[in-house]
Design a binder for these strands. Structure first.
Length: 207
DNA sequence: CAGAAGATCCCCT
DNA sequence: GGGGATCTTCTGC
């Protein structure tokens, strides 16, 4: 298994978004480790992209991390109750990122189950199993990811609160490109096919 | 199963 | 003061 390094993330965002499919996202602390396979991503190509937080080159405390070189976590809160987990891409000064929209649970489903439903994994309905990580807000809850995990360098271990992605060699997935979700405000960028999913994976957030 | 509506808060204008 | 890269619950078929 190899952990994705800086060179992987410091590339064009569409390529990174597509190649992340099938890779495994890990959140590891001294207390626990959780992991899920990435099955859905969305590319945000600021500053041109009207859907991106960095549209127009906007720099605020929230978006600042998007200007860093690739390989950092960008986590923002939304609708008052949820978080979205992104990975910064491209070189320093190009404010782009890819949103991780869905995972397929790989390791520590017990942890995910408690975080999401406060129930043992064996007691989940099939609908709840599918609902563990099939959406950007859901996967953050299941993985124990919140604003404390913002701006983590995913290419260096700190030993306390690590997030990284590894390649376990699984490949050959069929990738589908489609328009991004819930960006109605983005005008001509609404229809850009910058959402990528693994075909027929049950954890993809929606058809 | 689909659609509507409410929850809830930080960031930005 | 407004709104959002969402999710859950509730309604009605």
């Amino acid at each position: 298994m190899k952990i994705l390094n800086r060179d992987f993330f410091v590339r064009d965002t569409l390529t990174v978004s597509k190649e992340l499919l099938g890779k495994v996202l890990v959140h590891q602390t001294p207390e626990y480790a959780v992991a899920g396979r990435i099955v859905e991503t969305e590319a945000y190509l600021g500053p041109e992209d009207k859907a991106a937080h960095s549209y127009g080159g906007k720099i605020t405390p929230r978006t600042e991390i998007m200007y860093n070189q690739g390989g950092y976590s960008y986590i923002f809160a939304i609708y008052g109750m949820y978080h979205c987990f992104n990975i910064v891409t491209e070189k320093q000064g190009t404010p782009q990122a890819t949103l991780i929209r869905a995972l397929e649970p790989v390791t520590n489903m017990e942890f995910m189950s408690e975080m999401r439903f406060n129930k043992a994994y064996t007691n989940l309905s099939s609908k709840q199993i599918r609902g563990l990580t099939n959406g950007p807000g859901k996967l953050c809850i299941a993985m124990g990811i919140g604003k404390e995990q913002n701006k983590i360098d995913m290419c260096e271990r700190n030993g306390k609160d690590d997030i990284y992605v590894y390649d376990d060699g699984c490949k050959g997935y069929e990738i589908i490109a489609s328009p991004r979700i819930n960006i109605d405000y983005a005008e001509e960028y609404v229809q850009m096919p910058w959402r990528f999913t693994i075909k027929q994976n049950m954890y993809v957030s929606r058809k």
